[in-house]
Computed example of a mutant assay.
Amino acid sequence: MKALLLSAYAADSHRYWARGLMAHLDAIDWTLIELAPRHFQWRVRGNPLSFMSEHDATLSQSFDLIVATSLVDLATLIGLYPHLGRAFRVVYFHENQFAYPLGEQQTRRLEPLMVNLYSALAADRVLFNSQWNRDSFFNGVDAFLKKMPERVAPLRLEALKTHSEILPVPLWPLEKTPSFDRKTPSRIVWNHRWEYDKNPEDFFAAFETLSGSGIEFELVVMGQVFRHRPEVFDQARSRLARHITCWGHQTRERYLEELGKGGIVVSTAWHEFQGLAVMEAVQHGCIPLVPERLCFPEYYASPYRYDGSRDALVERLEQWLTSPEARPAPPDISAWTWPQMSRRYQSRLQRPV
């Protein structure tokens, strides 16, 4: 089977998924086209032009399967290359723009919403990485259509729900099982994108409070860093300098090494549809501490969740740092790896008989 894999905004998690797909479904003859993760508004509306400008010869070929991320304007691309409409078309939602939290001085733009919707409608099958992602997408679409000047209720939207499924991004298997006998139980990991939607303010404020209380801990702050980042990162680096053992974007090797030495991985996110960064840390032996919102209740039992408030985060961290025996063991996430999930992916990428 000849397949075209399209990624319009190839952030780290999207690249991780795409390379896992090609490596673990290697019976498929893959062709990958991806665009760098920058200039988001231009990318989301202009990606058909970028694809056409840089990859016209490839797009002019015939494929049996097209797998596209949800930021690919698949409907427009098929309009430009009608023969692609004959392929079995799958759109994968790492996230959806209907549930994306707005930062300060941001307004909700229509273009990303429409691209998500049109791409889903142009697909034969739609895959979401969590139930939260799927539900917030369809709820967002419903609310969005009610705002349109003329009443719009496309019949295909109901059909779309019937051929949408939940299929998380799998983890690459580890060569060596990590040890859970931590020599550094007080080492805390932040390994998320350095953006406002990950709520770094609550994370760093919690540790400033703990530091002021004389509680000892180490901080490993990694993740994808962009040209523009929240000011709180630079402020925290100064205020928490004596606790920091690793800071900034790392090579893949160093990143995995630091995860393997971590004790607790924390999320304070306002926006998370699967939380791949937390999953990777848990895979390497870290204990997750995540808020009671978004996708997290789907993946982690109550001992690993706090109510989402800053006070509750401080309280749980203080307990875990001063009484390590009170912490639960890392959860078993073996079911989330490629060896366990590859057959599910294989079946979902095939045209129904």
Rank of each mutant, 00 (worst) to 15 (best):
M1K: 00
L4H: 09
S7R: 10
D12F: 14
W17A: 05
M22N: 04
D26Q: 03
I28Q: 04
L32G: 02
E34I: 04
H39V: 06
W42R: 15
N47D: 15
N47Q: 09
E54K: 07
H55L: 07
Q61A: 15
S62F: 13
V67K: 03
V67E: 05
V67P: 00
V67R: 01
A68L: 01
T69G: 12
L71T: 10
T76R: 13
V91R: 09
F93A: 08
H94F: 12
E95P: 00
A99I: 01
Q106L: 10
E111Y: 03
L113T: 02
Y118K: 14
A122F: 05
D124Q: 03
L127A: 08
Q131N: 11
W132S: 11
G140D: 07
A143C: 07
A143Q: 01
H163C: 08
E165R: 13
I166L: 08
P170Q: 06
P178G: 11
K183R: 14
R187G: 10
K198V: 14
N199F: 08
D202N: 11
E216M: 09
F217V: 00
M222T: 15
P230N: 08
A236K: 00
W270Y: 13
G275F: 07
C286V: 12
I287P: 01
L289N: 01
E292S: 12
R293E: 09
C295P: 01
Y304T: 02
S309Q: 06
D311E: 12
Q319M: 15
W320S: 03
P324V: 05
P324G: 08
R327W: 06
W336T: 10
Y345S: 07
R348S: 14
P352T: 03
